[in-house]
């Protein structure tokens, strides 16, 4: 489903070049649950941006479901983000002035999907937030906000969900709840990519990609007691 070949990203910082990502290659199959780990500055955020089609690589190839992403223009990238990718951020990134339901409708509106309200309500129900539909983000708890964000991420039935430190702003109990939701989603067939520096969180995934200095240093499928059953 995801094929990354010698992916590189070089940032131009004034006269210096910063290679944030160098020759990274891997494949992710449909239905996988992958954690990307590494210290800050290791290139995991850059990898995340590239996988999420928020940015284009300066070298290499990224193929998402038979689409060569590096050949797309800005609007086509927006289309891919809308239809094929769901984002879950550390700080939730919900629109503060919109209700939970409206936040979840938004990708459907941009995707011109018919009956957005029903689909959004469905997604809310899936994350157990049906009774909070009319609440604004500041009226929700951290866990509820992240659940709303997850509902928004999956509402367009994306090929992959990218989660960037999804539990970083939550207490450990709420974090576990969120991870439970992810595990459920993965069991239902959603491909998940999780960026984290927390090994316990990464332990939920069945495969871990370790990044360092822009290089992929370890790619191991973790099969063990932490994996969800």
């Amino acid at each position: 489903m995801i094929q990354v070949e010698q992916l590189g990203k070089i940032y131009q910082l004034g006269r210096h070049e910063l290679a944030a990502l160098r020759d990274v290659s891997f494949e992710i199959e449909s239905g996988e649950y992958v954690a990307v780990m590494g210290p800050s500055g290791s290139g995991k955020s850059t990898l995340m941006n590239l996988l999420g089609c928020l940015d284009l690589p300066t070298s290499g190839k990224y193929r998402l479901e038979s689409t060569d992403v590096q050949d797309l223009n800005q609007d086509q990238l927006a289309g891919v983000r809308n239809k094929r990718i769901g984002f879950v951020f550390q700080n939730f990134n919900l629109l503060p002035r919109a209700t939970a339901l409206e936040n979840i409708e938004l990708p459907l509106l941009y995707g011109r999907v018919p009956n957005p309200r029903e689909i959004a309500l469905d997604a809310l129900d899936k994350v157990g937030l049906a009774d909070r539909a009319k609440h604004r983000p500041n009226e929700l708890s951290g866990g509820e906000r992240q659940r709303a964000a997850i509902a928004r991420a999956l509402v367009n039935k994306p090929a992959i969900i990218l989660a960037d430190e999804p539990t970083g702003n939550l207490d450990s109990k709420t974090g576990e709840e969120i991870m439970g939701i992810f595990s459920d989603l993965n069991r239902d067939g959603t491909t998940l990519i999780l960026v984290t520096h927390d090994p316990i969180i990464a332990g939920h995934a069945r495969r871990t990609l370790k990044m360092q200095d822009g290089l992929l240093v370890d790619d191991s499928a973790v099969v063990g007691e932490n994996a969800p059953c």
């Binding site: 800005q74 609007d75 927006a78 289309g79 983000r81 809308n82 239809k83 990134n93 629109l95």
Partner: peptide, 16 residues
């Protein structure tokens, strides 16, 4: 700015 970033991340095109 942040709102615009969110909108773009979930698929808003430039035109939108």
């Amino acid at each position: 700015t942040r709102e615009i970033g969110i909108r773009k991340a979930i698929g808003a095109k430039r035109k939108e």
